[in-house]
Structure formats: structure tokens, C-alpha cells
Amino acid sequence: MDKTTIICRCEEINCEEIEEAIGHDARTFDDIKRLTRCGMGPCQAKICISLVADVIHEQTGSHLHEIPLPRMRMPISPIKLETLATNSTTFSSVKSVMDEVELEEGKVR
């Protein structure tokens, strides 16, 4: 693939940057995300997920089933903070980040 081809439309990460991350031993989508911001824009990897897997496959020879899925966090699609923070009712903790922070009575532990 042409090196200048954009892979992540949102964060505008091109093929060369993905390959460079793979050169630094990135082997999963999340590895590449941490090194490049690929997949961290508004679409949250919905478009680039399969394109990145293809690049990893091409570069490393890993089979597609050996390249795990990225984390898919809450919220699943963009939502206004006003809606999420102000107008949410009677909820328990947010599950998607429970192993990182525990939200309890408004405090972050």
C-alpha cells in the first residue's frame, strides 16, 4: 500500500506511521493506538479497525485471527456530555472502565 494512504480518517494516521509503530513491536490495534493515536478520534476506530488489522497482517504475517480486537469503550457512539453527565438517571458504575477507575458517589478512586 502507498505509504501516504490515510488509515485512520479521524486522527489522520497514514500507512507509514502504522508501519513505523509495527517496527517498534506493536502487534495489536491497541499497541498501535497507544503509539500513534490511531483510532482515538470521534469514530473510535469504527472505520480503521479492519484496515489496521490488514496492515499488521501484511507487515508481520500474523493471521487475522491472531490480531485481537481493540477495546470498545462506552459510549459506543458520540454523545453530548450534557446528555451523559447531566441527564443520566439512576446508574451504577460505568463498566467499561471499571478496571481502571472506580466511580463511586462522584469520586474517582
Binding site: 459510549p75 457512539s77 454523545i79 446528555t83 441527564n87 438517571t89 446508574f91 451504577s92 463498566k95
Partner: peptide
């Protein structure tokens, strides 16, 4: 309406873009 995620107690978060309810 759309699902935005799940909560620790198992409830599903649904939004109508104005509010989020379980």
C-alpha cells in the same frame, strides 16, 4: 434511541440524545 453501553449492575444505557436511562 441508541445503546451507549452497559453498566456494572447489568443494566443497558439507552439514550434518546437528551437523556440517558437504564
Amino acid at each position: 434511541h441508541r445503546m451507549i453501553g452497559t453498566y456494572k449492575d447489568g443494566s443497558i444505557g439507552i439514550t434518546d440524545e437528551t437523556n440517558v436511562f437504564p
